[in-house]
Design a protein around this nucleic acid. Structure first.
Lengths: 190, 190
DNA sequence: GTCTATATCGAGATAGAC
DNA sequence: GTCTATCTCGATATAGAC
């Protein structure tokens, strides 16, 4: 693959990523993506064998992004509590997108689940990356066997906040919930 | 409309309701519904002008179900706290469906939102019915201006629990979360 | 009221010119 | 590598016989 071809491929994946988030995977046609990248519909198949392959590239990209994010948090924060707070703050900084499109992970898992899509497990892996990392932080805080349940609790709270913020298009709710979630965290780890 | 025709119409709506929940609206074709009800695909259009009209009938039916449920709870429980607990217990009794298909309301709102479907607002009304009723209970408990936020908090917790239970196909998580949610409620209203 | 046959449309995907 | 033209398929929807 030449440099130019590789760059176009990345642009396709980036456009697909955004469109899948905004409109969903099935509602996004090749034409939508082709228009966004300004290529012809046929050109697509030089870079990807099928629509599923684009989805795979999008999920892989998201997984890489999450891994990088976790590495960054590892480097920037040292105390487990600060790492957990970084996760919660992600909700705050993404509030605009959440209001408009929901949680990208949750929404994609829901869609692939309904469609009984074979790539569902890859999408769930996005959740698992966060879950395992959060579990680790709770373990470092001495939560032992409870750590996994606490991690999933945090995931669920985040999903719930994203879902209701999206449905009611209400970021005030999100802000208040984030405060409460931080209080819950403080009470839980002490 | 004759009695027989009306009955068939109800069977169609019931089958569509179930299939929309299990597979999603867009993934469910007329053929799927026709097979379930054992009628021909053409026969459909005698009872409904379009697929959207079936969706409308399904949403209307769900709205009616929710209203009846709330009336039942009003009749069976007298203290606001018991009414709030009835809402939480609904999660417990639906755990099997939640594990397999998620929350029917949340999942439908997500799908219609992505598809930018004009009937989204009707689906959101399902959430609003619960929200307003829960708000009322918190008001009766003297929560005043906080009542709405508490109601939305409860909705969000339920959505989050349903989402994670579904994604990880884990009802143990759901059971533990329900316990915690009841404790939160107890602490909140005292 | 219910059926079969068919129209229509947009999607993913392919072929082959350039 | 990128394009245009085309294929195929499944979906919603319609027409008209019975």
């Amino acid at each position: 693959m030449t440099r130019k071809g590789e760059l176009l491929r990345q642009r396709i994946v980036a456009a697909a990523d955004e469109l899948f988030y905004q409109q969903g995977y099935e509602n996004t046609s090749f034409n939508d993506i082709a228009n966004a990248v300004e290529i012809s519909c046929g050109n697509f198949y030089f870079h990807f064998k099928s629509k599923d392959e684009i989805l795979k590239a999008v999920i892989d990209k998201r997984l890489e992004n999450i891994k990088h994010m976790l590495v960054d948090w590892e480097q920037n924060y040292h105390k487990p509590i600060d790492k957990l707070l970084a996760y919660i703050d992600m909700l705050y900084s993404n509030q605009g997108n959440i209001k408009n499109h929901g949680c990208p992970i949750g929404v994609m898992c829901t869609e692939l689940n309904k469609a009984n899509h074979f790539m569902l497990s890859d999408a769930v892996e996005m959740h698992t990356l966060f879950k395992d990392w959060l579990t680790q932080q709770f373990e470092l805080l001495g939560k032992g066997k409870e750590a996994n349940q606490l991690s999933m609790h945090l995931l669920a709270r985040a999903q719930g906040i994203a879902s209701i913020t999206h449905t009611f298009e209400n970021t005030d709710f999100l802000k208040k919930e984030i405060k409460q979630l931080k209080e819950w965290l403080k009470d839980t780890i002490k």
